[in-house]
């Protein structure tokens, strides 16, 4: 990742062959990992992983490096931005690849999962929870992630996730007149 963040974007976007080759060598492991991870739940083969990764590089250099020129190093790390671009390209690749008559067994459960809309739920009034509190509760209970994963996502320590979660639950219980379990 260090090599990647040392990329000279000015030279790279002029179409310099040597700069492009160095960039590809540095970026390939990250793009490969992101595409592989994104497509893993769709059970696509190795060729699809390679094609989707190639799509990422095509996007980056297409139309005289137009996409690469939109990247601003002052705002985000090159690796993180590339990971976001790679994930989006992998999802697009899957959508193109998906056949209209895909057998039901091949569709991941997460895609088929449907929330039961018949259960009447009490609405959480706007402003009761902060955006961060809502996000933490959704990650913990809707996505069923553990505290460490949420901490990694938000770049905060696990204890902060726990205390934010605790405060959010106290607010909810106070508002809806619930006793703690």
């Amino acid at each position: 990742m260090t090599e990647l963040n040392q990329t000279d974007l000015r030279v790279l976007t002029t179409g310099d062959k040597r700069a492009w080759d160095t960039f590809v060598t540095a970026a390939a492991p990250l793009i490969n990992a992101v595409v592989r991870r994104t497509l893993s739940s769709y059970r696509l083969g190795e060729d699809d992983v390679l094609d989707a990764a190639q799509d990422v590089f095509v996007r980056l250099c297409a139309q005289d490096f137009r996409l690469l020129k939109t990247y601003d190093p002052a705002r985000a790390g090159l690796g993180t931005w590339l990971a976001v671009v790679a994930r989006s390209a992998a999802v697009d690749h899957f959508r193109r690849r998906r056949q209209a008559t895909q057998p039901l067994d091949e569709v991941p459960e997460s895609v088929l999962g449907v929330e039961d809309k018949h259960v009447e739920k009490l609405k959480i009034p706007q402003g009761l929870l902060t955006d961060r509190q809502t996000l933490i509760l959704k990650c913990l209970y809707d996505e069923e992630r553990d505290v460490a994963e949420v901490a990694l996502l938000l770049k905060i320590d696990a204890q902060t996730v726990r205390s934010t979660h605790h405060k959010a639950l106290l607010r909810l219980r106070a508002h809806f007149g619930e006793e703690p379990a």
Partner: peptide, 12 residues
């Protein structure tokens, strides 16, 4: 439980 309470609610 916290999870049951959350699942019974609908965020705005």
């Amino acid at each position: 439980t916290d999870k049951e309470l959350w699942r019974s609610l609908a965020p705005d």
